[in-house]
Amino acid sequence: MRILFLGDVVGRAGRECVLARLPGLIREWKLDLVVVNGENAAGGFGLTEAIYDELMAAGADAVTLGNHAFDQREALVFIERAPNLVRPMNFPKGTPGRGAALVEAKNGARVLVMNVMGRIFMDPLDDPFAALDDALEGAVLGEMVDAVVVDVHAETTSEKQAIGYHCDGRASLVVGTHTHVPTADHRILAGGTAYMTDAGMCGCYDSVIGMDKEEPLRRFTRKIGAGRFQPAEGPGTLSGVAVETCDRTGLAQKVMPVRLGSGLDEARPLCWEQ
């Protein structure tokens, strides 16, 4: 199975590059599953139903969230009727939505998509390790499901790496989001799980993690803000990770970074090129 995971979509620049490129990549790379983190897609903060529908229409099979999951208040309502929209599963009991979704891939495979949020320098949510254990116990890779994708929305590399090792052999891919900067540590762990500490973002890289540079610079240099952060308006770059799994075991066989656009040096899965 061929899986493409795209990092945090930030504002209009991120949406436009995903909507423009994704349908062609699905055809060119013969993708079976596409997962997109959409938690910054609406003006940099949260997700609206209209944007969710656009991402799904462009070819996403599931959309994950994070700490900005409910910044757009309408998400509290529409998440209940969006079965492939996944918020962190370690939110408190009673939070609207779901932390895991069993998704039918484009090739008919059964894929469990999960989202957890870290607790270091983040909101103190429930234990993400225990939440993952509960979910994985009922979804044995290669038996009950054909693939498992885990989006770890967290601040620190140490917590993301720990979750990667914790899920090794039980997930097809564990990938970090939230920090918006792609890391160079994509690899297959000893148990067969593909791992990358951060997929980066889909957005304008002539920015401070996707936001127009003026306000972050003002706050860093003067400690006084003059307004809210606004997404940068320059050309968008698509960033993420591509994984190929074994059809029998669901474990990873290949993992490759994806960076398409003028903001970063290009990276693409050349073995998938026609």
Rank of each mutant, 00 (worst) to 15 (best):
M1T: 11
F5Y: 15
L6N: 11
G7F: 13
G7A: 03
D32A: 11
V36T: 07
E39D: 15
E39H: 11
G43I: 11
G43P: 10
E49S: 05
A50P: 00
Y52I: 01
V63S: 06
T64D: 03
A69G: 05
F70H: 09
F70V: 02
V77G: 11
E80S: 13
N84V: 09
V86E: 11
K93Q: 13
P96M: 10
E104W: 03
N107Q: 10
A109K: 15
V113F: 02
R119D: 04
M122L: 02
L125W: 13
P128H: 06
A130K: 12
E137V: 01
A147D: 15
H153R: 02
A154W: 12
T157Y: 03
A162T: 04
H166I: 00
C167Y: 02
S172Q: 13
G176Y: 06
T177G: 08
V181R: 14
V181K: 14
T183I: 08
D185C: 05
H186N: 05
R187A: 08
A199N: 12
C202T: 04
E214A: 09
R218L: 06
R219E: 04
R219L: 07
R219W: 10
A226W: 12
R228G: 10
L238G: 00
S239H: 10
T245V: 15
A252C: 15
Q253E: 15
P257H: 10
P257S: 11
L260T: 03
D265E: 14
P269M: 13
